[in-house]
Write a protein that binds this DNA or RNA. Structure first.
Lengths: 191, 191
DNA sequence: ACCTGAACACCGTTCAAGT
DNA sequence: ACCTGAACACCGTTCAAGT
């Protein structure tokens, strides 16, 4: 009679994500992960193909979680401006809860660690949809990239403590977002 | 009579930076670096304190190089818009030449790896200066953060191949930059 | 002053052996 | 089907010993 699995796939990925946030990517080792799960290191290979594969799975989960939060935030605001701010705040909140995960999700691709292209669909669809509202179909893709870039850059640079000379981060972020929203409205009016 | 040093500090850092770009941060190992320099691993510890210290030195060099390029680009354009585009292009070019280095320079801070705060002074001064021209002293800090965020985010997301649905990256990037520059001009006119 | 080989405590991964 | 201990080739770092 076979053993019932002693490790739940979900527990493995949760423990791995915790370890990643606490110790960084170099600290997420198969042996340490096994130690925390109370099993031997080789037994992990019955649940993931390799360490790279483990990273890939973590990224998939992270990307799905981010997509869920963004499309949730998208439905929360009354005006377009509110929705942009809600989504941007959700993005930054995610970045602050899971900085290592965010860096991994949108970081340098190492072959074997990157998930299929369609995993991020939900997140990009949410951003594209709000961009469509603001500037119309034709410019939506460009505007979505601009908005995403700004929010992403802001989240990462804040985490890296690069904005330390600014005493009021909330105000700075709102200023940046409104620059884009205002510019979009001006363009839409001009047409 | 003491040995003359067989390793030049500059060679060590260059080789380390090359190895970083080729193999990523996890591939930059003291032993592999020593191998490439034709010395034993322990002898590296006469030139750097630790692997973390090596990373810190690489980051310092990278930040200085980026600062030099940005303040060079800042002097190149005739109009403010030209200068913004020149600096942004220099930033993206740096990111494309040295993606791993950029991720390191502005990535998650691991204690012991981060350089002193004033090392990035040159780069931030260049961005602040162009921001001052565009929106005046009062909003310069906020605008600089917005501009830097956008360019940084754009560079990273491009590298992570997140803009693959957009066939024309050059046009998308110019669109994004001009959104900010136009928004800044509109604000300056309104005052 | 600088370099070395040996050593220690780590690491990813494989594999034969166990239930 | 799942887990283990032993093994292999790595790794950062220290240290006594050499020039």
């Amino acid at each position: 009679m076979p053993h019932p699995s002693r490790i739940q796939r979900d527990d493995l990925l949760s423990a791995a994500t915790n370890l990643l946030e606490r110790e960084g990517p170099e600290g997420l080792s198969m042996r340490e992960l096994a130690r925390r799960l109370g099993v031997s290191a080789p037994s992990l290979y019955f649940h993931v193909e390799s360490r790279d594969d483990l990273f890939r799975e973590i990224i998939v989960r992270g990307l799905e979680e981010l997509g869920t939060r963004l499309s949730g935030a998208q439905e929360s605001g009354r005006t377009v401006r509110d929705r942009v701010h809600a989504m941007a705040s959700a993005y930054v909140a995610f970045a602050e809860e899971s900085p290592q995960l965010l860096a991994l999700v949108f970081g340098q691709r190492t072959p074997g660690r990157m998930p299929d292209a369609e995993v991020g669909e939900r997140a990009s669809e949410a951003v594209l949809s709000v961009a469509r509202e603001l500037v119309g179909e034709d410019e939506a893709l460009f505007f979505a990239e601009a908005l995403w870039s700004m929010v992403h850059g802001y989240a990462l640079l804040r985490l890296a403590d690069q904005f330390r000379v600014n005493p009021d981060h909330e105000a700075g972020f709102r200023y940046a977002l409104d620059l884009l929203v205002d510019a979009a409205s001006a363009r839409a009016d001009a047409v």
